[in-house]
């Protein structure tokens, strides 16, 4: 792992961590601006007894590699941990930490959490903020408008809940961008309004996904695999995840299923899930069935094995139901590949 050095300037985070002063010699006063004034007081004897309350005098916090060093001093971070947010995930992204430490829990975070609790389950809350801590930097008004936008597009309450909890980044996108993306999907795949709503609910991540990647995968599915426009629409609504996987992997899987196993397009369309399984899984089960003489995927003939059986269920169930043999035989076969 590339160790990424966190460079956190303590002086900038005075909101989260109370200001500290150094034993009367060097006083650091966090000012309004970023530049702090350093003033030297009249030197006094260090050994001199004092009756003043010095409990606010603490050692200076140094630069650190991770947030665990600060967590005992910052109420904000402690609250986040109590919410089950995995703050160790932010270590690799110093820009997040710099923004996050400047926030105050009561002022900036509480209202966001209360607002989001209407849409995200309490158990998923930690995961939500782990994925997208930058949501605290968005204005609450903006978040409200973005939810209102979804309502105006006639999404039901349960659908909005699903969209927001499944895709934590959704609320970071402005309504203009989301609207443009809805427009893109509607036009590019020739979808009706209802279909777009269905797509956004089943796979909210696809709407905010990299559109170049979506176009590349559409090219692969349409031109390289040879599905027709109508079939692509069906695939998109059934398995939108196909548009989020690596194009090379997708082609490799299709190539194996269609060209080597000789499965026609219609069967693949009905069981689009096979395209989401890694190629070695399909390969080892197919070769095993072939060695037993059971690789028969035509439903009109005897000893039919559904194509789904190659990707679903554990190996034990596969052996019992379709290969009709012991799991040890399958394991032995795997050691000959």
């Amino acid at each position: 792992m590339a160790i990424c050095k966190l460079f956190i300037r303590i002086l900038k985070i005075h909101n989260a961590i109370p200001a500290r002063s150094m034993c009367g010699y060097l006083q650091v006063e966090p000012g309004e601006s970023e530049i702090c004034s350093i003033s030297y007081e009249k030197p006094t004897n260090v050994l001199q007894r004092t009756h003043k309350d010095l409990s606010d005098v603490t050692p200076f916090l140094s630069n650190t590699f991770n947030l665990a060093a600060y967590v005992n001093h910052s109420k904000t971070l402690q609250n986040l941990i109590d919410l089950n947010v995995n703050i160790s995930k932010f270590e690799k992204k110093p820009y997040i930490i710099e923004k996050l430490l400047k926030l105050d829990f009561e002022k900036n975070m509480k209202s966001h959490i209360v607002f989001l609790s209407d849409y995200v389950n309490m158990e998923q809350m930690g995961e939500f903020f782990t994925k997208n801590p930058m949501i605290f930097c968005e204005h609450l008004e903006d978040l409200k408008t973005r939810v209102n936008y979804l309502e105006s597009k006639r999404f039901s309450d349960s659908e909005i809940k699903r969209i927001i909890s499944k895709n934590p980044y959704w609320l970071n996108f402005s309504t203009i961008r989301i609207d443009r993306r809805f427009g893109f999907y509607q036009q590019y795949f020739d979808l009706s309004g209802k279909n777009v709503r269905c797509l956004a609910t089943t796979q909210p991540k696809l709407i905010t996904y990299n559109l170049h990647h979506v176009k590349c995968n559409t090219f692969a599915i349409k031109e390289e695999m040879g599905f027709k426009d109508e079939e692509i629409k069906l695939l998109l609504l059934n398995k939108p995840k196909l548009w989020m996987i690596n194009q090379r992997m997708l082609i490799e899987r299709f190539n194996y299923i269609h060209n080597i196993m000789k499965i026609p397009h219609t069967t693949i369309l009905e069981n689009a899930g096979v395209l989401l399984s890694r190629v070695f899984r399909i390969k080892q089960r197919h070769l095993f069935l072939q060695s037993l003489g059971r690789a028969q995927y035509d439903p009109k003939k005897v000893n039919y094995v559904p194509i789904k059986a190659l990707v679903e269920k554990s190996d034990v169930e596969f052996c019992n139901n379709f290969a009709k043999c012991d799991i040890d035989d399958f394991n032995m076969f795997l050691k000959t590949l």
């Binding site: 947030l67 665990a68 967590v71 005992n72 971070l77 402690q78 160790s88």
Partner: peptide, 12 residues
């Protein structure tokens, strides 16, 4: 409780 020892703060 030491928050710094929590796997959520110091990582796995």
């Amino acid at each position: 409780p030491n928050y710094a020892d929590n796997p959520l703060a110091c990582g796995p």
